[in-house]
Design a protein around this nucleic acid. Structure first.
Lengths: 283, 283
DNA sequence: CGCCAACTTGATGGCTGTCAAGTCAGGTGG
DNA sequence: CCACCTGACTTGACAGCCATCAAGTTGGCG
């Protein structure tokens, strides 16, 4: 196996050293971390805050929590108390439907904030599972609301965060609503690539942390279709796949594929405003 | 045509009379409306606010804006300045994709708040089009943020609002990702029914304000499939359709259809937490 | 080394998209 | 008032994409 591990082998150094000698592996109740020195910084909620506001936040710091691969960060039905900012690692979020069906709603990496679906009802609507050993900041929502009453930039930041999640999901809806299997998979890979690159990893060579089934669920496809599509992409020289390792070889053709709309419902008029690129931009 | 017009023929009386003698048909710059007397109240953002907070909001009131059928409330690419609370009428929201494809992301009626996708970037990602003559409250976002710094209940309300939109979209994603055409249409009708009933309309007999194509776009189906599915439902005695008028005859069977998951990805383990019913609950 | 889960690949079928023709409703103008 | 016209909808025939079922194959882990 290649040494490349674009997501977990973190180039980011965090201000706080790895859990020293805590009793609990799950929650480091005693470990608080700072935003001002966190390298995931500007992807996260504290991104863009003025120094004086950052300092106020760091007066208390946030608890850190460690989630091992396969473990849940939170479960559906659980009482909502906090948002979680991913410091390192990788998560999938899923919703449970009546009759036990499961649907993957997103994949989340350093800087992403998850758990937002719990705010509305006070109960988590989704679940988050770590796909590799991960660390999160526990952003107690009560405190977040308090702080955002006196820190306007934080307030704005929180709103942006929630809004971006709405826009992200709009993109996914558009993707699920009208794109072919090929286009979906291409868009998915480009989205991952884009987000990894934004985090200073290679956007052209990375490991998929999730199973084919997870990808399929996310994209509204069966795992066989995902597998077949990847194989076809490889045949056609768009990329190479070895197990989880993906190397993108022809970015431009990939983009064209992702934009392809076989079930097109064209607009009547010409002058086109800003458009959404499904899955391309994500918080 | 039947006199039934469950959505537009409003049983709700608003505190403010219809636009008196303004020059502009579009924006009643001079007309401000109150939350405390708005009958759409508890569906909207002011719902559940304590009286003293409501009074503070009403000191200024919000501008009202009238949008005629077919007109845009806002367009994609337009600068974001405000959220819009639907007072009466009916809207669809859509996203534009590269190459001119369009995707319907939601339908919105009295009490729903739209425009939330603009917060993140300062630019509207979606468009809103009135499907019938409508009224909205213009919730200037700057002001909303100001007020929510001093009115904690309003702050919480705003966050709930955004979170609920996230959850709603999660439900749609799940629907688009793994349900048959029949299940999608059934879930769509049940969702409409549910929301109309919550607004004191009949949940069993209502007019569809949107075209078959809009429904199809929303559900990730072609308009022919929507039409066929409705016809089949009618054949089987689930409902009756005459143009836009839908009468639901067998609610229970409808529910079973909507829950049907042909592309099921079952969970490994038993004990199931809270589940999501796609499209059933909406803000 | 062996087992199991994850994945790949093939064959087949069904759902739903596509194309096409026809019907219907509503609005406009004569 | 009626004819016409246009857009929305319905219905049919067909095809293609993707799900399904079924074997393999691989890789990771004990």
């Amino acid at each position: 196996m290649s040494a490349i591990n674009s997501i977990s082998a973190s180039p980011i150094e965090y201000s706080t050293p790895a859990a020293p000698n805590t009793l609990s592996l799950q929650v480091d109740r005693g470990v608080r971390v700072n935003c001002s020195t966190c390298r995931a910084g500007h992807h996260c909620i504290a991104g863009g805050l003025p120094v004086n506001e950052l300092e106020k936040i760091d007066e208390q710091g946030f608890f850190r929590r460690i989630v091992r691969r396969g473990e849940h960060l939170y479960r559906s039905g659980q009482r909502f108390t906090a948002l979680y900012a991913v410091r390192s690692g990788f998560f999938k979020t899923t919703v449970l439907l009546e009759e036990g069906r499961m649907h993957v709603t997103g994949f989340h990496m350093a800087g992403d904030v998850i758990g937002t679906d719990g705010i509305g009802t006070g109960v988590q609507a989704s679940e988050a599972v770590a796909l590799e050993d991960s660390e999160v900041c526990v952003l107690t929502f009560e405190r977040l609301e308090q702080m955002s009453r006196v820190l306007p930039t934080l307030q704005r930041s929180l709103h942006r965060l929630l809004s971006r999640e709405i826009v992200r999901e709009q993109g996914v809806m558009a993707l699920l609503g009208g794109m072919s299997a090929e286009a979906r998979v291409a868009a998915f890979l480009l989205n991952l690539s884009y987000r990894l690159r934004a985090r200073l990893y290679s956007g052209l060579e990375f490991n998929l942390r999730m199973s084919r089934e997870d990808i399929g669920s996310y994209l509204g496809l069966k795992l066989e279709t995902v597998s077949r599509t990847l194989s076809r992409f490889a045949e056609e020289g768009l990329l190479s796949v070895q197990n989880k390792l993906v190397r993108i070889l022809d970015l431009e053709r990939m983009h064209r594929l992702a934009g392809q709309t076989p079930l097109a419902a064209r607009l009547p008029k010409a002058g086109a405003p800003a458009t959404i690129v499904p899955l391309r931009r994500a918080s």
